[in-house]
Design a protein around this nucleic acid. Structure first.
Lengths: 302, 302
DNA sequence: GTAGTTGGGTAAATTATTTACATGGGCCGG
DNA sequence: CCGGCCCATGTAAATAATTTACCCAACTAC
């Protein structure tokens, strides 16, 4: 009978009604049974409708929901809607979304499976992603003078995406798709440079060579891969792990691409935030630096 | 826009609101944003409350929900309750994931928010994606002689991804990033050609021009956009709608890119399956054709 | 039989919703 | 630069929903 029941903590509307049943008057009970019989329909009816269907009056409906513990009809109604929504979701997981896509699937099945697969790839990656490593990567990129990015195939697109993003916030970066150009550029990096390699398997020779060259040149190396213990993962200073559920259908590489993209997004937002803080900090420093001189002048130029 | 939307098919309230956003008047949009900011709270408020909070009038609230496609306020309210119940169940969401990313977020917060945002963008898009339209698009691309793809910025990468994929299953396609080259190529399409444009807003002039040129040349035109009622959407023969949750942080355009990619993946798998079926059918035909001769031999080579 | 109690309803008061209409500001043709 | 027109928005009236106040009938206990 407490107050707290309305709103979020209310998963028990139906339970409450059921347990209140014995203490209800006949006409109130008629309403209760109507509600229990089809809660989702009840949620859409007005007090008047409900009274009509139950062969009773609006007053009895009011008495009913007060006894069940609600202070207003819309509270009951909303909880009813919420509860039924939950239930319909529970047994709504489309069958077979775990399976790989096969030729007998309808387009609807395909959409479900892809959505499920990609969703899970993101969720799993969020889980697996090491925040400390991410922080190191953010730090490295934020403070680097230049960032070289390399990936082949799908990884190349992800790399390009990162490059576009970094460029937009004023950081110097290059995305290479040609192995030779990438190698050449990596070799020219120095201690202030960063190299990022994107590869699902972590076994592509070109990608590993790229990181090795960057490392030899003294740069900080970052790998985005599903397999931290691959050649690529072992080479990199910082490994950002994805956790893609790879479907094999026509090697669409969908899960891995989505997961890589998600990691890149995190990296980008981290860097954007970091450099934002850095510039604020820099501003404060310069501000402090001129502060001592201000007393003498009317206005100091920054 | 009629009846069908209330009740069970209604998990898309927020999606509907989001996609209606551009076509809403300022005061209606204020309401929409209020609702999007905290849907579960909105569900508990009356029209008057909502109007007050949004600094506008009840009339505007009414106009808002009518435009979003509801015939009555309580319909909207119930759907809102249902949808938020569904989401809070789906992945017992950490507090505040609905908010945009801000400078005080830790890296862990950032990862959570991005994961949530992208996950929801995919789920919403899966919901909103019209399977019939998708089927038409699959059919068009599968049977076309050539597919031209165009997008700017993030959309360009998505286009390239589609191109890579189609290429891998042996279909002729081009992904353009230069508007002039795209236009020129589009103008050379004919009735057997398909043009695909990828644009979140659907308002980029170059993108619309590209589709118009393709259409004028007689090709089938497909748009992948968040806003079906945009210039781009109205131009295209087939519109594939995304339903991205756009965060504004540094205009990362993360949600939209992920959603577009998911649509492209569906398109690709559909096409792959379609042509696979076609080849299976062809195999069966040839198989049947030689069947008559088999009786005479011990082993027929296919 | 009468007073008290209980279940239930009618109708009035309140509050929420929808609709009809008015206003005011910006823009276009002259 | 003026008048008219249209769009966006609001005010207020009409309608519909809700909640409350009050009443009646039936049953119970003396």
């Amino acid at each position: 009978m407490e107050e707290a029941l309305s709103g979020q903590l209310s998963r028990t509307v139906l339970v409450r009604i059921r347990s209140a049943l014995p203490s209800l008057r006949p006409s109130e009970r008629a309403i209760a049974e109507l509600v229990l019989a089809d809660p989702s329909r009840a949620a859409t009816m007005s007090i008047g409708d409900l009274a009509g269907q139950g062969g009773t009056s609006t007053t009895s409906v009011v008495r009913f929901y007060k006894k069940v513990g609600y202070s207003g009809y819309s509270d009951l109604r909303l909880d009813l809607a919420r509860e039924t929504a939950r239930e319909s979701l529970a047994n709504n997981v489309p069958a077979g979304v775990y399976e790989d896509i096969n030729t007998s699937d309808s387009l609807r099945d395909i959409v479900s499976k892809i959505a499920f697969n990609e969703t899970m790839s993101i969720a799993d990656t969020a889980q697996v992603l090491d925040v400390d490593k991410l922080a190191q990567a953010v730090q490295a990129i934020s403070t680097s003078r230049r960032t070289d990015i390399f990936g082949v195939g799908a990884g190349g697109l992800v790399g390009e995406d990162l490059q576009q993003k970094l460029h937009r916030i004023g950081l110097t970066s290059f995305s290479w798709s040609d192995p030779h150009a990438a190698l050449a550029s990596a070799a020219l990096l120095d201690g202030d440079g960063v190299a990022v390699a994107v590869s699902h398997s972590g076994t592509t020779v070109d990608t590993v060579d790229f990181l090795l060259a960057a490392k030899a040149a003294g740069a900080t190396t970052i790998a985005v891969t599903n397999h931290a213990d691959s050649a690529l993962g072992r080479t990199a200073d910082i490994v950002l792990s994805t956790a893609a559920r790879e479907t094999t259908f026509r090697s669409g590489a969908m899960g891995s691409r989505i997961a890589q993209m998600m990691v890149v997004d995190c990296l980008f937002v981290g860097v954007a935030q970091h450099s934002h803080e850095a510039s604020v900090a820099a501003l404060q420093k310069t501000h402090a630096a001129v502060q001592g001189r201000k007393l003498l002048r009317g206005n100091a130029s920054a």
